[in-house]
Every structure is written in C-alpha cells, then in structure tokens.
C-alpha cells in the first residue's frame, strides 16, 4: 500500500467528512436547543440536492446564485418543519418529538417520490468544476476542493455567528435554560426558528455537494447521510458545534479508511460498522469527544 494511496484515501475521507460535518452541525444545534433528535434533518439534504438539480440543470442558473438560493430555501424548509411539526408538541416527552421527526422524514421522502418519482436522476456540475486536479499523486476534481473549502468557510461563519453575535448568544442561552432565557426577554420561538434555519441551510448546501460528488440523486438520498451525520454528532458530543465538526471528519475518514484499507470483502459491511460504532459510543462514552454530560431522556 503506497503512501500516495493512503494520501488519496485521506483526501476522500476529508471530502466525505466535510459533508457529514455540515449535516451534523444542524443535528447538534437542534438537539442542543430543544433536545430533539431530528430524524427529518437528513431529508433537508435531499431537498437541497433536488433544488440544486432544478436550478442548475433545468433553469440553468449560475452556480453561485444556485448555492445562495439553496441556502435560503433550505433554511425556509427548516423553519416550516419546525413550525408545522415540532412547535405544537414542545414540552412533550423527548420520544414524542423523535417519533414526530420520523413521521416528517417519511412524509418528505414520499412527497419526493410523489412529485419526482423514485427514479434516480443524474446530476452534473458545470465543466470547470469537473476538472481533475493532480497534486503529488493525489487527484481530485475541482468540485472536491470547492466542497472542502466552502464547508470550512461555512463552518467558520457559523461558529462566529454563534459565539459573537447577539442572536448566537440568545441561542446558547436558550439551549441552557429556556425559562431563564425568556426572563431575559429572549423570544425563544424566534431563537429556535433561527436554529432550525441555520442547521437546515447547512444541510441543504450539503445536499448540493452530495449531488456534485456522487452524480446521482433520488428522494431517499437523505436517509443514510442523515443517519450517519447523527452518528457523527454523537461521536463529537451531541449539542456541541465543534464536536459535530470533529465527529463529521472522524466518521468520514474512518469510513473511507475502513473501506480502503481492509480487504474488499469487508467493504459491504461499512454501514454495519458505522452503526456498531454508534451503539458502542452511546454505551461507552455517551458524551462523545467534546460534549457535555447529557440528561437522560424520558
């Protein structure tokens, strides 16, 4: 096994990890603020991917505009999901929210099937993004570079927003104690809505990237990355944004290395590997790498 091969695998892992990290951030933020494991979060990835397809290939809009529209539209989708399903059952047991999110997920997937049919669709980015770059034996496409850099940029922007702005401060305060946050004059409905909007915007962009990376999308596409990003959030410590980012890269790298370094016969078991890791982490270190102690659900 050559050094170049391993370097190539690491680059692939970082690309996958960037996408997991973007989705995991939303999982973690939403969990952090209302203790909800939002199963429907992965389906926002699917919506982002189809929006990209529509805008880029059908409407022929320029790439940057497409990215911007996807960002905003996904945020709106997140807001609608929160308003429609989760706000009316705020205060209910955690499991209730989780079942509801499962229902929302199944609804979105089947709306996708209803409107777009279950047929996978091909997806191509503009030529200049498909160009192959070769650096010291490691080759990747321009789109891979765009994925990694824009994921990093978005994550930095989000961390700044959460740590340096008044809205971010309100979000962190609400995550800690909803009642006291209200006593400070914080409108928690608006704060929770903002959290869904931000998390979903990142998930939508991850959908754009997913399409660009794998070249084919269908209405069920969000399921697996959604679940895996949840695993990433748990690895990093659910509720923590840096944890979600770290968890995303750790999962992306280990998944690619699992497939790349072990004999091919094992690669079919990659999903089993990911979910065994999830169960193990929940049992052994439920707070993840960077998380704070979490309260037990009822």
């Amino acid at each position: 096994m050559s050094g170049e091969y391993i370097a190539q695998q690491i680059v692939n892992g970082l690309i996958l990890g960037s996408m997991y990290a973007l989705v995991a951030i939303g999982f973690s933020m939403i969990y952090g603020i209302i203790r909800l494991i939002n199963f429907a979060h992965g389906d926002v990835v699917m919506i982002g991917a189809f929006l990209t397809l529509g805008l880029l290939q059908v409407a022929g809009a320029p790439f940057l505009i497409v990215a911007l529209v996807v960002l905003i539209a996904s945020a709106i989708v997140g807001i609608l999901i929160e308003k429609g399903a989760f706000r009316p059952m705020r205060g209910a047991p955690q499991v209730t929210g989780f079942i509801a999110s499962l229902a929302v997920s199944i609804m979105l997937q089947n709306l996708g099937i209803l409107v777009l049919t279950a047929q996978p669709r091909n997806f191509t980015f503009p030529d200049y993004l498909q160009k192959v770059i070769n650096m010291g034996g490691v080759s990747f496409r321009a789109v891979d570079l765009v994925i990694m850099l824009s994921a990093l940029t978005l994550m930095c922007a989000l961390i700044l927003l959460v740590n340096k702005t008044k809205l971010g401060m309100a979000m962190r305060a609400t995550a800690e104690n909803i009642d006291v946050a209200r006593l400070m004059g914080i409108n928690i409905n608006r704060t929770i809505m903002a959290t869904f909007a931000m998390g979903s915007a990142l998930a939508g962009i991850a959908g754009l990237m997913w399409g660009g990376k794998f070249g084919q999308i269908d209405p069920l596409l969000g399921f697996v990355p959604g679940l895996k990003s949840f695993v990433a959030a748990v690895i990093g410590g659910v509720g923590s944004i840096p944890g979600a980012i770290l968890g995303g890269y750790v999962l992306g790298l280990s998944e690619v290395l699992f497939v790349g370094l072990l004999p091919p016969i094992y690669s079919a078991f990659r999903d089993a590997f990911v979910f065994s890791t999830l169960i193990l982490i929940l049992l052994i270190m439920p707070n993840g790498i960077l998380g704070k102690p979490m309260e037990e659900g009822t």
């Binding site: 962190r172 800690e176 104690n177 006291v180 006593l183």
Partner: peptide
Amino acid sequence: CPEGRGIFSQL
C-alpha cells in the same frame, strides 16, 4: 432573578 440563580454556566 430566578430560583437557583439560573445563570448561563456555558456563557
């Protein structure tokens, strides 16, 4: 100023 002080310990 609530019961148990209610400071935001992470802030």
